[in-house]
Design a protein around this nucleic acid. Structure first.
Lengths: 207, 207
DNA sequence: CATTGTGAACGGGTTCACAGCA
DNA sequence: TGCTGTGAACCCGTTCACAATG
């Protein structure tokens, strides 16, 4: 369910703005303009101004936007001015890679638990995590009040696992399994499937 | 560059149709309707019919679409009725996971070479690949006429590596690095960045 | 004087509704 | 009768253009 006081497509662009602003800040820039930000992202200046104006007048005529100020506003809007705990389900190759990924920190997220149902994997150490038995997943997630999960299980298991996650109180799922999930409207679901994106590109390739 | 005889947004939905049709075929179904397919994907029936009609009349009034026939047509349209070779650049945690991923086969893709610039990794075995020195990347890709690359290198290296890939003749890049790439218009680029998708979802979460 | 914020114009994607056909 | 294919209507996101302002 995405209640649309603000168009969802606008919300979807905000993280990209934030990403580029972080990069600019890292380069020591203090200020930017809708023009400059747009050029970096391949988005029109007018669109960036309009998107930001949904949330308030963050800029100054003549000078543009103060980067650090805009970063703070966007973090507030996206609710990433806090750290969200994430449960990772599926400790296969991909799950292992994600569990060890360092890039979540400082962007509002951290993995706090890893589950699998494979006896050969349960109990093994994965970075700083011990892989837990997914039999106890519902309880563990509910108790820790984790609201976000990443799903890296085989396609056939995804729907079932997702339903358990929802029952455990998870409100947002990032699904790496190549399957569309059917879940209640109020659950946020995003998909990552490299094959879909590759196939999109091959359409445009010369044989 | 995406020349628009067919709207790009339509092309982007075709892989999803294909994915669901594959699943239906695997369940033994022979036929489906725009209604049924749409329900599965959360897309309106009218939209599916209109999308498909850009490419031809694939259905039959009264009965719907023959799944195997539609799968073949979509594979043709997306040019995945062949196997595309992929070069993987970056043999870190994520690159390793992708190199060993079994899901590309039968969807039109296979990884054929893996590169890295880290001396500690070059020469090591990664599934059935030996990690090659990225110093020889340009030559190797050019010689093998590889047209698609996946990028799993650190953000700061991504732009530079992408430029080498383009020089080597790569026409499509799937970029897992959290950076926007600036490349010639005719190069296809798609991005995978879990943080952008997580931040999109947190907007809708209750604190 | 550069650049924002925004109402109005525009364009294109989605939905509607129905004719056509197995 | 059931479902496709499609022109027309509709809706919504993007671009335009300019007044406002530091």
């Amino acid at each position: 369910m995405r209640l649309e006081l603000i168009p969802d497509i606008v919300v979807g662009r905000l993280p990209r703005y934030l990403q580029t602003l972080h990069k600019m800040a890292g380069e020591g820039k203090q200020t930017t303009s809708s023009q400059e930000l747009g050029a970096e992202l391949g988005i029109s200046a007018a669109q960036i101004r309009k998107d930001l104006s949904f949330f308030g007048g963050f800029g100054k005529q003549g000078t543009g936007y103060a980067i650090s100020f805009l970063v703070e506003r966007l973090q507030e809007i996206l609710k990433v001015n806090q750290v969200w705990d994430i449960a990772l389900v599926g400790a296969g190759n991909l799950g292992k890679a994600i569990a060890q990924y360092q890039g979540f920190t400082n962007r509002g997220f951290r993995v706090v638990m890893v589950f699998d149902n494979d006896l050969a994997v349960i109990g093994t150490q994965l970075g700083k995590f011990t892989v837990q038995d997914s039999a106890g997943m519902l309880q563990a997630i509910r108790q820790a009040r984790v609201k976000i999960a990443m799903l890296t299980v085989p396609a056939l298991a995804a729907q079932k696992v997702a339903e358990i996650l929802v029952e455990a109180g998870v409100q947002a799922i990032l699904n790496y399994s190549p399957t569309a999930l059917t879940l209640p409207d109020e659950i946020q679901v995003e998909y990552i499937d490299p094959i879909l994106q590759l196939q999109h590109m091959t359409y445009y390739l010369k044989a």
